[in-house]
């Protein structure tokens, strides 16, 4: 019996796809793909240029929660599949430095969710940071999040190559993690970050200050 291909997210039959999705062998149906609203945009935060692909709201937020909190590892290929060619082309000969998870979360999940997601783009990823303590950022206040720099450290045994360095993360809520990571490797030049989505509040703040981003 031939197996019926199903949408990776809604698990309905995959018969409704655009021609481009069919050609690219997309794992999502047309309505799920549209609901994620993946679109490339950038914002400048201090000396860091952040490229993001969506807002952390509605369906994208729900899908990310299912991936991270419900540990649905199969979803790793759905987030960046639309832009993976752009990432591969635009960032060839770059090394991606991944934002760390707490060891507790890592043990619970069994996979590093940011690495699994970006691995789909076929780019080299270096897991060179770690958290000293198991702090949970989910419930942390805006003020508390800025203290993340005390927790993040560079792994001692890792040698960072002399290539163009790109920081990667899944969600940017206040940007403190990325700025702290940038600070950790300040002897190397790293001015770019790539993330799946940003929090709508951060974007609102950014829009309000009209590219003069100075919340810190």
């Amino acid at each position: 019996m031939p197996t019926i291909r199903k949408c990776l997210y809604c698990q309905k039959s995959l018969h409704k796809q655009s021609l481009m999705q069919y050609m690219m062998n997309d794992a999502l149906c047309l309505s799920c793909r549209r609901s994620l609203k993946i679109k490339r945009k950038t914002l400048q935060m201090k000396s860091l240029k952040i490229t993001y692909f969506g807002l952390y709201e509605h369906d994208l937020a729900e899908a990310l929660l299912q991936y991270k909190e419900c540990m649905d590892e199969a979803l790793k290929e759905m987030f960046l599949s639309e832009v993976k060619d752009w990432i591969r082309f635009h960032y060839h000969n770059c090394v991606f430095l991944c934002a760390p998870s707490s060891s507790k979360a890592l043990e619970r999940r069994g996979f590093q969710h940011v690495i699994s997601m970006f691995e789909q783009c076929g780019v080299p990823i270096l897991d060179c940071f770690e958290k000293k303590t198991d702090t949970d950022q989910k419930q942390a206040s805006f003020q508390k999040r800025s203290e993340i720099s005390d927790v993040l450290v560079l792994k001692q045994e890792v040698d960072i190559p002399d290539k163009r360095l790109i920081l990667i993360d899944d969600i940017v809520t206040t940007g403190s993690t990325l700025l702290a990571l940038q600070n950790l490797i300040k002897d190397k030049e790293c001015t770019e970050a790539l993330c799946l989505c940003i929090h709508p509040k951060l974007l609102a703040e950014y829009d309000k200050k009209r590219r003069r981003f100075c919340i810190y």
């Binding site: 299912q66 419900c70 540990m71 649905d72 590892e73 199969a74 999940r109 069994g110």
Partner: peptide, 14 residues
Amino acid sequence: GSKGWYCRACVQFS
């Protein structure tokens, strides 16, 4: 997945 086979029908419950 990394920890073995799991069911995706009820994965929204973790």
